[in-house]
Design a protein around this nucleic acid. Structure first.
Lengths: 329, 329
DNA sequence: CTGTTAGCGCCTTCAG
DNA sequence: CTGAAGGCGCTAACAG
């Protein structure tokens, strides 16, 4: 293996000088910088990241925490989008991203988890798909031991930022657009899950709608399940003018139920995963949104790692709005 | 941060002794081993993997190389299954897995890629979804610079193993089972892509079928595209008794075409991704198979890293056979 | 602007 | 069976 020492010798300069040009510090003359760079390419030198990490005590290592979707493929698409966005962005920011599944750490308590992450020399974390029931993770966040960015859950503190889609606004908007083309104001809202942060945000949109449309929505929880949405639709579709769902998968369930009932009601989904194409509808994906969200998260984490304070950011809604223009109604 | 030095002091032994018990070397008395372990738990010591890597010159770091599925969600499910299988297995084997997307390295030539991987101190690689057109990767494999396990592509050398599903056998079996229930022997086979290794394997199954059934199959390439399979079906369905496809997505396309044509022919897919549930068929997923395949790959890579020779392994077909018992015919 | 030097935390001979 | 000592490759003061 060829080291900076070799480079230094080849270039005829000191070892520290090489280190400086490698890390882009200033205080090196144009001439020596060139000498060093030449030596580097001549020798085909590649810096040893491990040694750099040990020496600088900065591993630049971040963990991407996500949940496997054992129940629906939509989850897989979302996860892959997050992952590719985050990993690519990490690469651009010279961070080293490792992916971790909830399932791998679910049997650890807070302190064991902290030990584990430390032994992996992980400095920061991006948490995808957190919900209110993930108590260990919530404790981890509260401990402020690691720099963390939480996606789509409004948790922040000195070392935690959050980046979210504005679900309240998006849900309001999606349903309102659907209403533009119909008569009546009776809403059946099939919400996700009580323990989901985004479901909570979406429900505030329903309150706002009730107020604006002078109506009282019928709200049921579908637990993000196609089947439950289907059942809810069978039960309550008749006394509704529109069926709005907190996820696309549930919208599929609702549409199927309507087909079997052989009645027409506008159905409005949320999420825009590609899966929808197989329910007989054409649509663009919002894959890009998830990638962007992940990208934003990486940038925020980098800020945090560099010492800034935790903060909440909203991102992605603009894009989602565009995509929803002509979908599902 | 608390180091082995602290542990050594706490336990009243030498640093090297601590290192030995930590790494499970023998040559330490039962008594001192206990003393050390107690000190470790008392202090809540977590070894620094970076320092260990630098010192031992073994990072234990492996790269998981995979392709994003920009065209179909089935790909996402497969990728996620691979990933979770590989990552979990890596954790169990005390390896450190980082995921890398083809897209991130597609603009690098062989040597640049080698540099990149080295700078990341990656010692081994598991390559998913390789096809014959990925020339840079093939060159990388041929260079034998890294220990590599290739999934589903028959490439091996001194430092490369491959782990594959027995596609030839599986494809033969799946089609044969479908034939059990029908009359006639005319096959329309919609193959994947010419550049795909697994497509090549599946095509050998077709030759065997032609021989066994005294027939001549009509073979077209569907490029793993639902649309192309659909078109092929429109064109050639009438003169066939069965339509066999190299992937489930293409089987969906074929089924849709048949529905529009309003004729019935048995359709036989391949792959068993959960997506199929949305095409109106119930089935189990072969998610587990992909996880197992990935697991197998990690184990093989570990062998390779430990110094064994590259070799080809077949795995997973047994499982797939079970799952196909009552699917799609 | 350039060179010297002391570690980072751990592993690993090699004496004792 | 245990301890002392010399690196691994790089970074970061600190002199010069």
């Amino acid at each position: 293996m060829i080291t900076i020492k070799d480079v230094a010798a080849e270039a005829g300069v000191a070892i520290s000088t090489v280190s400086k040009v490698l890390n882009g510090y200033d205080g090196v003359s144009r001439a020596t910088r060139d000498k060093v760079n030449n030596a580097v390419t001549r020798l085909g030198f590649t810096p040893n990241a491990v040694a750099a990490a040990l020496s600088s005590k900065q591993s630049g290592r971040i963990g991407l925490l996500l949940k496997m979707g054992n129940d629906n493929t939509a989850m897989d698409e979302i996860n892959m989008s997050y992952l590719s966005g985050a990993i690519r962005s990490a690469m651009d920011n010279r961070l080293d991203a490792v992916t971790i599944f909830y399932e791998m750490i679910s049997d650890l308590d807070r302190d064991a988890l902290i030990s584990y992450l430390k032994s992996q020399s992980i400095e920061g974390l991006i948490i995808f798909g957190l919900n209110k029931e993930d108590s260990t993770l919530i404790k981890l966040i509260e401990s402020e031991v690691f720099k963390i960015v939480v996606i789509d859950a409004p948790l922040t503190n000195a070392s935690t930022s959050s980046v979210s889609i504005d679900y309240a606004e998006a849900q309001y908007d999606v349903i309102m657009r659907t209403f533009e083309n119909i008569e009546g104001n009776r809403i059946l809202y099939i919400a996700g899950r009580d323990s989901s942060y985004s479901t909570a945000a979406k429900l505030t949109a329903i309150s706002r709608l009730e107020h604006d449309l002078h109506t009282r929505a019928h709200i049921v929880y579908g637990d993000f399940s196609e089947l439950k949405a289907r059942e809810a639709t069978f039960k309550y579709a008749k006394e509704s003018d529109i069926i709005a769902c907190g996820s696309d998968l549930m919208a599929i369930g609702a549409m199927r139920a309507l087909m079997e009932l052989d009645i027409f009601k506008p159905v409005c989904g949320f999420g825009g995963v590609r899966l929808m194409a197989y329910a007989g509808k054409q649509m663009n994906t919002v894959r890009q949104d998830f990638e962007n969200l992940a990208h934003e998260a990486v940038v925020r984490l980098k800020d945090l790692l560099a010492g800034s304070e935790g903060k909440a950011y909203t991102a992605g809604y603009e894009l989602i709005r565009m995509k929803y223009a002509d979908v599902l109604n």
